[in-house]
Every structure is written in structure tokens, then in C-alpha cells.
Design a protein around this nucleic acid. Structure first.
Lengths: 248, 248
DNA sequence: GGTTTCAATATGTATATACATAATCGCCAT
DNA sequence: ATGGCGATTATGTATATACATATTGAAACC
């Protein structure tokens, strides 16, 4: 078998114009250059900027709106939306909401908070290649009096330096991040495991009882943002994800 | 322009035209009226049928193509795609592929096959309201010599009557269904549990060892099609799902 | 017979244009 | 002030048109 010629699609050439506009704008948003709430140039401005017709610009912006990255308002313009919670994609959202949906009082206790230079393991979890500062957090989420989930999180401080100044006593790191960092990609790993002593102790369950473990890595515009591991006692939790093949 | 040829603006929906075209076609595909491989009318035919411009039709068809329901080929037309495996959405596909990706030989053994009128429990699992015939299957998937996953499946024979004539000795029910029934919606429930004696026995693990359980319900155009439960030994399996907020 | 060439065809992308619709601003009259 | 009202503005949808591009089927050629 011979290798395929490197028919090399380099960054910009072969893209159609409306796709180029689309990815330009998306990049601006995901990189944070255009923060949530920022007004995107009007169609007629982009028309001038890209030297194309309004229909072409409109197609790109409509697509971004359908994707949920921006919001369009007549007479006012188009705006970068607040970062959408992952809930829309996988029903794996704010634990507070899960707990309150059960009709139980929610509480979150921060167990640990350490700022450090990333260890090799940290970098593996986050998907970082170079060393840098990270924040390691451990929190316990309660439903009523019972522990509901243990959260172990790493935050890449190079990507989210503000996190280094936050104590996370009043707010859980999940909601904090969702409200600040737009995400471009997330990966979930879901598995079952037997509770080790640390986990059993924190969750107040028997050692070696089955647990559901959900790990999530999140990127924003190619940069790793956070790695989080949730450990749920098996009996307390079922993940539900509902899909349609695609949207129309 | 003359010629009214109103293809009936029924009900008086406030849908835009291209959205109406879009949902008309989607309905035809999901209901099975247009089977996989079926050629969708050419743009110029739809243009005549809906009495609108090609751009409008093109917008609708492009959107369906982007969503993956249809495939467009220049000079040939647009075709209903083979039902896409759920893999595209949640990496939870054919177990054969998972096993072979590990470099291990795959084998599937059918343990049980029972045709019966749905019990109350069957109906609860499938989401059926009225009684009707169902097919209950139990299969064991092997990776090499080791059991890899236990599959317990219910198929709604009212929705897929052909399944009643299939023995499922040569082919696993998953791939069989994916190749035949287009799905419009799927729901996953994922949890951890301790193996009971039956499961421990089938999977050849210790009783009360942690297992990952994945249950999936699938609908096609509002009709429940199948409910399946996969039980994996914890150490053999991690689910991975990768998302982007939306596509553009 | 087998290969090359070419024209026909359906889709892909872009343009200019038109009118509808919703939201907002500012003016005016009370 | 303030409440109403029209003008303005940006987006929403649709049209007709043009040309590019990929693919196919058949004619032309060696």
C-alpha cells in the first residue's frame, strides 16, 4: 500500500468563504478574545471586512447561532453567549442541580486545595506536555446528610490563572469554571470501580463497594482546562444521556 | 408568477419554508418510508413540489446532510444514509469492534432467546403502554477466551417484526438492528453495580465484584424499538465519549 | 476491446436584491 | 415627565441568477 499524497489542506486555502468566516469567529470566541456578551460585528461590517455579500455572512452567523455559540437579536446585533453548561450535551451537570432535583438540601465541602507545579501524573491527566502550575482540589458533595459524590479536580492555571486566587469555599469549582471558561471540547471516561479505603471513608460506604467513576477532561480552543473525577456510590447514581441523531 | 399548486399549507404552522421541507423529509426517513439508500428527489423536483427556489431547497438538504441523515453526491443526487451507528454520538458501538480494537479475537454466544407477550416489566423497560409481542435475548460477548460483556436485550416485535424470524446465532442483535432500523432517539443509563450470582457466573468474575452497566433504549419515529443492558466487568471497560459544544 | 474525451447533470457556493419582522431610538404631543 | 408613534436598523427569509466542481454516461478514438 502506498502512502497517500500529502494533498495537504493547509489552514485557509481550500475552505469556502462562509466556513472561513465561521471558524474565524469561533476561534475568537473560544480563545476568549471575544468574551461572553461581546457584540460581534454587524453583518454589514463583516460584509465589508471579508468583501463578500451579506448572504454569505448571514449563513455563517446563522450557523453559529444554531450551534448555540452566539445569540442574535434583531436591531441589536449578535452577541457571544454565556458559556453553555455541558448539560446540553450530556446530562452531567452541576451536582447541585442533580441533588436539588431529588428534593434534598445540597451542600459542598472543600476538603483540599493545593497549588503546585504539575507532576507527571497531573500532566497525563490534563493532557499537558510542558510543566506548569496547576490547582488540585478535592471536594465532597452532600445530598442532605449523606455524601453524594467525591470530586477530585485539577485545573490548569496556565489556561485559567484566575482560578489560583479562588478559595472555592463558597462555590464548587464546576459551576465556577462553567461560568467563566467557554469550552470547545470535552471527553468523558466512565467506569466502575471498587471503593478503596480513602473513597469509602469519604463517601461513608463499605470498602470495595461498587462506585461509578466519571472523569472529564475539558479543552478550550486546544488548551487543556481541567480534569475532574467524580466518584459516586453505585446505589446513589445513574447517568442519563439522551440523544437524537442530529439536529435539524 | 402564476400557478398556485398549493401543496397545502395545512394547519397554518408558522414554520419557515425551508424548515418545513426539512422536517417533511426527516419524517419520511425516520418513519422508514424512505429506506436507507433511497434517492431523495432532486433539488429541482423539490423546487417544483414546494414551489420555491432552489436555494431554499438547497438550504434544507444541506442541513440534513450536515446532520448526517442524508448523503449528497454531485451529479447523482441525495440519498438516505445507512442508519448511522450510535458510535458517532456516544462511543458505545458494536462490541465486536471494541474487542477487535483490543487485538483480541471476538466471539458472541447466544445464551437465550424467548418470544413472549410483554410482561409489565418488559413494557416498563421498553417504554410501551400497550401489551404486545417482544423478543428477549441474552448473549455473551467474548474477547479471546474471557467473557467481555453480558447483553440482555428486549426487542419490540410490533416495531420490528422481522426480528421474530431471526435466530441471532450468527449475528449479534446489535449490529442486526443497526443495519435495519434507523433510530431517531436513544437514551442511555449508565451505572455501577455489584455482580449478582447470575452475572458473576456468566462473566466469570467474583460475586459482588463491581460492574459497569449500560442500558440503552432506542426509538424510531416515536416507537420504542429496543432496550438493551450491557454488563461489563469493571476492570475490562471504560466508556469514552468526546464532545464538542456543537458543530458549525 | 479498451481508453480517452467530452458534454450533461446535480450539487456547492456566491452574488445582488427584495421585502418582512422585531426591537430600539428619538421626536412629538399631551 | 411620559406615553405613543413613526423612522431606523439589524436580522430573517426568500428569490433569481451565475459560475464552479465533481461525477457519470456515452461518444470518439486508437
Amino acid at each position: 500500500m502506498s502512502l497517500v499524497e500529502t494533498d495537504d489542506v493547509d489552514g485557509g486555502e481550500s475552505l469556502s468563504l462562509h466556513q472561513r468566516i465561521l471558524s474565524d469567529i469561533r476561534e475568537k470566541i473560544l480563545s476568549g478574545a471575544w468574551a461572553p456578551g461581546h457584540r460581534i460585528p454587524f453583518e454589514h461590517e463583516l460584509t465589508a471586512q471579508y468583501n463578500c455579500s451579506r448572504m454569505t455572512v448571514n449563513k455563517a452567523l446563522s450557523q453559529l447561532a444554531k450551534g448555540g455559540l452566539i445569540e442574535r437579536r434583531r436591531r441589536s446585533g449578535s452577541f457571544v453567549r454565556q458559556p453553555q453548561s455541558q448539560a446540553a450535551v450530556l446530562e452531567l451537570h452541576d451536582i447541585r442541580i442533580e441533588v436539588e432535583a431529588l428534593g434534598l438540601p445540597y451542600r459542598c465541602e472543600r476538603l483540599e486545595r493545593v497549588k503546585r507545579r504539575s507532576s507527571a501524573e497531573d500532566r497525563a491527566l490534563l493532557g499537558l506536555s510542558a510543566p506548569g502550575p496547576v490547582l488540585a482540589l478535592e471536594s465532597l458533595h452532600f445530598a442532605g446528610e449523606r455524601p453524594f459524590a467525591l470530586e477530585q479536580r485539577l485545573i490548569n492555571l496556565s489556561a485559567v490563572p484566575e482560578a489560583g486566587d479562588e478559595e472555592f469555599l463558597e462555590i464548587a469549582p464546576g459551576p465556577w469554571l462553567i461560568g467563566r471558561v467557554p469550552w470547545s471540547e470535552a471527553e468523558h471516561r466512565i467506569r466502575a470501580m471498587a471503593a478503596d479505603d480513602t473513597i469509602a471513608d469519604a463517601l461513608d460506604i463499605e470498602a470495595s463497594a461498587p462506585c461509578l467513576v466519571v472523569e472529564r477532561r475539558t479543552w478550550s480552543a486546544e488548551h487543556p482546562v481541567t480534569h475532574v473525577r467524580f466518584v459516586y456510590p453505585a446505589e446513589s447514581h445513574t447517568l442519563v444521556a439522551r440523544f437524537t441523531p442530529s439536529q435539524g
